[in-house]
């Protein structure tokens, strides 16, 4: 009887391990656009080094981004972004930690594109805020493509834009996120 119990519990543990599916990437892509309405220059940057984990079982979703890995076309903008606006020496990282709220709508075992409602905590410039982000999760075999687009108010994250450049840098930034994750 004891043996049976042990076998059963071992089996159960094995199944749990099998379904503890984590998807990961470290080459996700994030870009933002904070161009003011009438600005002659585009205020935008790309980061191709986004780390992203999705746990299909719990619905946990984590993004981490290093500020110094954002690339601008112009070095001057990149410098201002790092030194003045984001203070990347002090706050080198931005992070999102949340959950897929409608996990039951996303079938990780069946190919298809699912709408996901994600909520969690977004940390930028050392300030953490609760956010709700709609996105899509596309499942194909053992890969998952995560996409999201949302907007943040720079003011909410204590990012001060001097009046001198207010005609170029907007009050909001549109953030576009894409991760192609593989099962680990």
């Amino acid at each position: 009887m004891k043996k049976l119990l042990l076998t059963v519990s071992c089996l159960m543990m094995a199944t749990t391990a099998m379904f503890a599916q984590k998807y990961m990437t470290r080459t996700g892509r994030i870009s933002f656009n904070a161009t003011a309405a009438k600005s002659p220059e585009k205020i935008e940057a790309i980061n191709n080094e986004v780390a992203n984990i999705v746990d299909a079982k719990t619905g946990d979703i984590v993004f981490q981004v290093l500020i110094k890995s954002f690339k601008f076309e112009r070095e001057l903008m990149q410098e201002h972004f790092n030194e003045n606006y984001m203070q990347s020496d002090k706050f080198p990282k931005s992070e999102f930690k949340g959950k897929i709220d409608n996990l039951s709508d996303v079938n990780f075992t069946k190919d298809g594109t699912y709408n996901a409602k994600v909520s969690g905590k977004l940390t930028i410039h050392g300030v953490t805020k609760d956010v709700n982000v709609p996105g899509t999760i596309a499942v194909k075999g053992n890969t998952v493509a995560v996409k999201a687009k949302f907007s943040v108010k720079l003011n909410d994250y204590n990012i001060d834009i001097p009046a001198m450049v207010a005609d170029k840098v907007g009050k909001d930034a549109t953030i576009t996120l894409e991760g192609n994750l593989t099962q680990k």
């Binding site: 080094e49 780390a51 981490q64 110094k68």
Partner: peptide, 14 residues
């Protein structure tokens, strides 16, 4: 490369 910090347990150079 330039070190951009620690990312999910890893060190990142860019």
């Amino acid at each position: 490369g330039f070190c951009s910090g620690g990312l999910m347990g890893s060190v990142s150079l860019t």
